[in-house]
């Protein structure tokens, strides 16, 4: 029963558009994997009676493993790239430091006891 969780009695949501029946993200993933998995199983087991050429079979069998590995590489590549290009806000830090000096002086003038 986890797959058809309605968006519930959120009046705000209904006000803005048609009510949508949503699945949890977990359910969406499980459905996706189940569908892909069964397509793969049907093709490799040949249970529909279709005989694929053996060269296709050779590619199909290890396909999930290949996909898994390439997904992992993709993830590492993306995260690595984003770490490498993460902005270091040196200017923002310098600006803040000088504004802190300015703020302290002004606040003392206004009578603040730090």
């Amino acid at each position: 029963n986890f797959r058809a969780q309605s968006s519930g009695p959120h009046r705000e949501g209904e006000l803005r558009g048609p009510k949508v029946v949503t699945m949890t993200k977990l359910a969406q993933w499980l459905w996706g994997l189940a569908i892909l998995g069964s397509i793969w199983a049907v093709l490799t087991m040949g249970s529909l009676g279709l005989e694929l050429p053996s060269s296709y079979q050779e590619v199909l069998w290890p396909l999930p493993a290949y996909l898994l590995v390439s997904a992992g590489c993709y993830a590492l590549g993306i995260v690595g790239y984003r770490v490498a290009t993460f902005h270091d806000c040196e200017d923002a830090a310098r600006e803040l430091q000088s504004q802190i000096q300015e703020a302290r002086a002004d606040l003392v003038r206004k009578g603040l006891r730090f």
Partner: peptide
């Protein structure tokens, strides 16, 4: 975009 961090 131009977002980022300092001190990490």
């Amino acid at each position: 975009g131009s977002g980022g961090v300092y001190g990490w």
